Simulated scan of single mutants.
Amino acid sequence: MGIDLDISTPEGWHAALAALRWQMELGVDEFIGDTPINAYDLPDRKAAPAEAPAATPPKRAAAEPYIPQISPAERAAQAADAAVADAAARAAAAANLDALREALAGYDHCEVKKGARNLVFSDGRPGARVLILGEAPGRDEDLEGRPFVGAAGQLLDRMFAAIGLSRDNPDLQHALYITNVMPWRPPGNRDPSPEEIAMMRPFVERHITLAAPDVIVLMGNTPCSALLGAKGILRLRGTWTEALGRPVMPMTHPAYLLRNPVAKREAWADLLAIKARLG
């Protein structure tokens, strides 16, 4: 049996009010809409949202080329090697003594050159049987541009004159040819450093080859270091050895003899050994 809910009549109005109170007692507190909703219906499956594209990682800046760090010592060693290589190339290209002198004049790796007045190349007679290799120019040599012209040079001339040899003798059999390891005067007349000797060694070796002596006399420690790779002239002197395929006699430097006259006796013995070697 249906209930008349026509609220236009008193009976219908009271019936609607009673129905409303009944629903409120049942817990109804909200009207959603006019269309009934079946709570047992499954909800529509909505399309899954498309996955967002993976984020593109930011581009990394191009890596700069790796440049190894070079220590000051390594940089100095590389510069020294380059200086020696340049010396070797210049010396090898010199076809004669004049060309070798020009090669030395154009060589700028040796800092000693900057403080010197002159290039001290040689003196005496090229082709002489005896070549004297000294250490480095002193003050007098730097001023005059010739090796062994000071007090030590005057003593050297007297020493070799005693066995019949001189730098100005026109006879090559009795002449001397004189040069130094260093063609420039080191500051304060200091000894040449190992690095400076290494730079000059190619020039010295080429100089000896072009001068073509029969005997080489090494005056002091620096020439022994350049040609023999050894020091200790007081131990080395007086004993024949060999360098560049030629006989070599180490001797104490005349400057040492001026300071130590007692050593002249040993120097005289060395001179007699040279005279005997020349025959």
Rank of each mutant, 00 (worst) to 15 (best):
residue 10 P to G: 09
residue 14 H to Q: 07
residue 15 A to S: 10
residue 15 A to M: 01
residue 17 L to S: 10
residue 18 A to N: 15
residue 22 W to N: 10
residue 26 L to Y: 01
residue 26 L to W: 03
residue 28 V to Q: 06
residue 30 E to G: 09
residue 31 F to G: 06
residue 31 F to R: 09
residue 38 N to D: 10
residue 38 N to P: 03
residue 39 A to D: 12
residue 41 D to G: 08
residue 41 D to F: 03
residue 49 P to L: 11
residue 49 P to S: 02
residue 55 A to R: 05
residue 56 T to Q: 14
residue 56 T to M: 15
residue 57 P to F: 04
residue 58 P to F: 05
residue 59 K to A: 10
residue 62 A to M: 10
residue 63 A to P: 04
residue 64 E to I: 02
residue 65 P to F: 01
residue 71 S to H: 13
residue 72 P to E: 08
residue 72 P to W: 02
residue 73 A to I: 15
residue 73 A to F: 04
residue 75 R to N: 15
residue 76 A to L: 08
residue 80 A to K: 01
residue 80 A to G: 10
residue 82 A to V: 13
residue 84 V to G: 00
residue 87 A to L: 05
residue 88 A to G: 04
residue 88 A to R: 07
residue 94 A to T: 10
residue 94 A to F: 00
residue 95 A to L: 01
residue 95 A to Y: 00
residue 98 D to T: 08
residue 100 L to M: 06
residue 103 A to V: 15
residue 105 A to T: 02
residue 106 G to K: 00
residue 125 R to Q: 11
residue 125 R to C: 05
residue 125 R to K: 08
residue 126 P to V: 08
residue 127 G to Y: 09
residue 130 V to P: 03
residue 130 V to D: 10
residue 131 L to W: 02
residue 133 L to V: 03
residue 133 L to M: 04
residue 135 E to Y: 03
residue 138 G to R: 01
residue 138 G to P: 13
residue 142 D to F: 11
residue 144 E to I: 14
residue 145 G to Q: 04
residue 146 R to H: 14
residue 150 G to A: 10
residue 155 L to G: 09
residue 155 L to K: 01
residue 167 R to V: 08
residue 168 D to R: 11
residue 169 N to M: 09
residue 170 P to T: 09
residue 171 D to T: 15
residue 172 L to Y: 02
residue 176 L to E: 08
residue 181 V to L: 09
residue 184 W to F: 06
residue 184 W to G: 01
residue 187 P to T: 12
residue 194 P to N: 07
residue 196 E to L: 07
residue 199 M to I: 11
residue 200 M to C: 05
residue 202 P to W: 06
residue 204 V to L: 07
residue 205 E to F: 00
residue 205 E to I: 14
residue 206 R to P: 08
residue 210 L to H: 05
residue 210 L to M: 01
residue 211 A to I: 08
residue 211 A to P: 04
residue 218 L to Q: 08
residue 221 N to Y: 13
residue 224 C to A: 05
residue 227 L to V: 02
residue 228 L to I: 12
residue 232 G to F: 07
residue 234 L to E: 06
residue 238 G to L: 07
residue 239 T to M: 08
residue 241 T to I: 11
residue 245 G to R: 05
residue 249 M to T: 02
residue 251 M to P: 00
residue 253 H to Y: 02
residue 255 A to V: 15
residue 257 L to E: 13
residue 258 L to N: 03
residue 258 L to G: 06
residue 258 L to C: 00
residue 260 N to A: 03
residue 265 R to F: 00
residue 267 A to T: 12
residue 271 L to V: 06
residue 273 A to H: 01
residue 276 A to F: 11
residue 277 R to Q: 02
residue 277 R to P: 00
residue 278 L to S: 05
residue 279 G to S: 13
